[in-house]
Design a protein around this nucleic acid. Structure first.
Lengths: 82, 82, 82, 82
DNA sequence: TAGGGCTACTTCCATC
DNA sequence: GATGGAAGTAGCCCTA
């Protein structure tokens, strides 16, 4: 056992690395799927940027979102960004 | 049909949004899984930052990686970072 | 001249590195300044998140921004996010 | 004073926004300067990616950097990435 | 109050 | 050039 990383530890290391790599692979597949959906939506005439905005807004609580938007609106009016 | 978005289009919109949201949900779960693995590894005494570095390096081609490292090493020696 | 990096090249390398580091330093100072402003604004009762949103929106062309917002609004209504 | 944002507050708001925008402008100029340096370096035959790596490593303490690299090396050997 | 995780933000990189 | 993902950083909150 002169190895700086004993075989049990080595096995644990390999296991961690492989688990992460497997998960990364699945993440990449999902990212491709998402890109496919947007490509389809674009092909169907939708504005992808607006779609992304809507989807982002949906992740926020509705009440909180309206509150944020109200504050932003107030600031914009105060700055003459009408 | 005074609606600016007709019902067929509306249905298509909902379908796209829901598909993306489902995929995003799965992505989030995978991200949590990855975080869990790193947490476990940390608990097992591994250096998470080094782990991430190793996993990143594994995605590179071995020959290319060694080439990069050689150049970096050369520059570091030239700068006295020995 | 057995050095893999000749002295002229070495000097050029050092010069590039130092120029970048100087610029990075200035960037960091500016980032601190920005953080200070937001801290002040927060202390003055402003909503920092909304402030950031407003400042981001100001970088967009006003007409384009309104166009985007109109599309987003249309999608949100179609999805019942009223 | 029926304005939701009183004039003093409005002035404060404008001041904050303008300060941030000015700082952002300076940051952008610095980013351009950095890009210029790398462009020059590339023109002089340097490997920009390796340069960036070296500059990043220089921000770390030398001892800490060597420690990190040793751990990474150990993990790589344990994984057979020799 | 110093640390330590957590979240959000920003920057960077790799990919198309 | 644009996009998405990852890494690093900073600020926040809580705990000890």
């Amino acid at each position: 056992m002169t190895d700086p990383v004993g075989s049990n530890v080595r096995e644990a290391l390999k296991a961690f690395v492989e688990r992460v790599e497997r998960l990364r692979e699945e993440q990449k597949e999902l990212a491709n799927d998402v890109a496919d959906v947007y490509r389809e939506a674009k092909g169907g005439g939708f504005d992808v940027r607006a779609l992304k905005t809507v989807i982002r807004l949906r992740t926020q609580d509705a009440a909180e979102r309206r509150e944020q938007e109200a504050v932003v609106e107030t600031y914009m009016q105060a700055l003459g960004m009408t």
